[in-house]
Structure formats: C-alpha cells, structure tokens
C-alpha cells in the first residue's frame, strides 16, 4: 500500500526534514571529498540530482513490472546497481555528445556517481515505503535537491574555514566532520515542519 502523502509534501520533506545526506547520512564519501570548492560541488550536485531522478524512475518500473510479479524481490540490490551503472554510462555518452561544456564541468564526477550510495538509498527507500510512481519521482527529485543543497552549503562553509584558525589536530577531515555534524543538527530543526517516513 502506497502511503497517503502528497508528492509536493514528499518533495519538501526529502529536501529538508529527511535530507538524504544530513538525516540519513547517505552519499558521504563524495560529499566530503568534492566539497572543497563551490564550482565542483555545484557540478556534482546537479549530476546527482539528474541521475537520481532517472534511475529512480527506471528502478520503479523494473520493480513494479519485473521483480514483484516474478516474486524476485531479493534481487533488487543487484538489479538497482546494474540500472544505476548503466544509466550513468549512457548519460555520460549523451552529455559528451550533446553538451561538451556540461560534460567538462562534470568531468570525473559523473562516473563517480555510480558508487554514490545516496542513489541506491533512494531506490531502496522507494521500495521499502512502497511509493507510487509520482511519489517516487518527487522523492528522488527532492533527495537530489537536498543533496545538492547540502554539498553547496558545506562547500561555502569550507571556504570560510580555510581562513579560520583551526587547531592543528582538527585540520582537514576533522573539522569537516564536525561541520557536517553541526549541519545535521541544524537540519533536524526542520523536522517539525513535515514528517515523512
């Protein structure tokens, strides 16, 4: 049974209250490593959002029309990963041809998305929570935008941190992890707004 949540509500919830990064802690590796400058963070955020929406839609269709009817739900992990890898590959080829400028802006980040756990996480949430197709689309879009927002925020904060007197023992990843913790606490402040599980 699909939960009775309006897709727009789901969109807002997945951006703020249950942010895929700061509430569910998915997609941390690229979040930490690519957040050193705003331009790259922006490119990666955009790429994650696009890939999320496309793969969520494809995975929803495969789940609904192949895996559930054949009672092969236990294959979902491997199938989702195949779909994600193939989508990223195709997207890379198409962007390279259609928009070389965007292809260059994304650079190495596009292939890196294949191993971004936020993408697989969204596909699995969509399955566990039995979302409808529209709900899935809005949830995926919201999660992508939320991830984008979080990495842009962290990149901006890191720019400030570069000029701050950070204690020697905390420099580098240490202070970044602290920052992410504080950001997560701030995002929890949104949780009264809408609550979606």
């Amino acid at each position: 049974m699909a939960p009775d949540i309006h897709p727009l509500m789901l969109l807002v919830a997945s951006i703020f209250t249950s942010n895929i990064l700061l509430a569910n802690f998915l997609g941390m590796c690229s979040f930490i490593s690519i957040s050193k400058d705003i331009k790259s963070a922006n490119g990666l955020g955009m790429a994650v959002t696009v890939v999320l929406v496309i793969t969520a839609a494809l995975n929803w269709a495969i789940l609904k029309y192949v895996l559930i009817p054949l009672d092969l739900l236990y294959l979902r992990y491997i199938v989702f990963i195949i779909v994600i890898a193939a989508t990223v590959q195709m997207l890379e080829m198409i962007i390279d041809r259609v928009s070389p400028g965007l292809y260059m802006a994304l650079g190495i980040f596009l292939p890196l998305i294949t191993v971004n756990c936020a993408i697989l996480g969204v596909a699995l949430f969509m399955e566990i929570r039995s979302y409808t197709f529209t709900q899935t689309l809005f949830f995926a879009l919201g999660s992508g935008l939320g991830w984008w927002l979080a990495i842009m925020a962290l990149a901006a904060i890191q720019k400030k941190i570069q000029k701050a007197p950070v204690p020697a023992g905390l420099q580098g990843p240490g202070i970044v992890l602290f920052t992410i913790g504080f950001m997560a606490m701030a995002f929890i402040g949104f949780s009264g707004m809408v609550n979606v599980q």
């Binding site: 495969i62 192949v66 895996l67 054949l70 092969l72 294959l75 491997i78 199938v79 195949i82 779909v83 193939a86 590959q89 195709m90 080829m93 198409i94 390279d96 041809r97």
Partner: peptide, 26 residues
C-alpha cells in the same frame, strides 16, 4: 533458473542499449 535469467536479461538489455547508443552518439 529464473533469477539468473532475469539478471542476464536486464543486463543484456542495458548492454544492448549502451552499444546502440555508443554507435549513434560516438
């Protein structure tokens, strides 16, 4: 045989689409 065939089928479809796309796009 169902599970391996489904995996092979899905992988095959995507591989085919990628191959066709590659020959058009590249």
């Amino acid at each position: 045989l169902e599970a391996p065939l489904i995996i092979a089928g899905i992988t095959g479809v995507f591989a085919g689409v990628i191959a066709i796309l590659d020959s058009i796009v590249n």
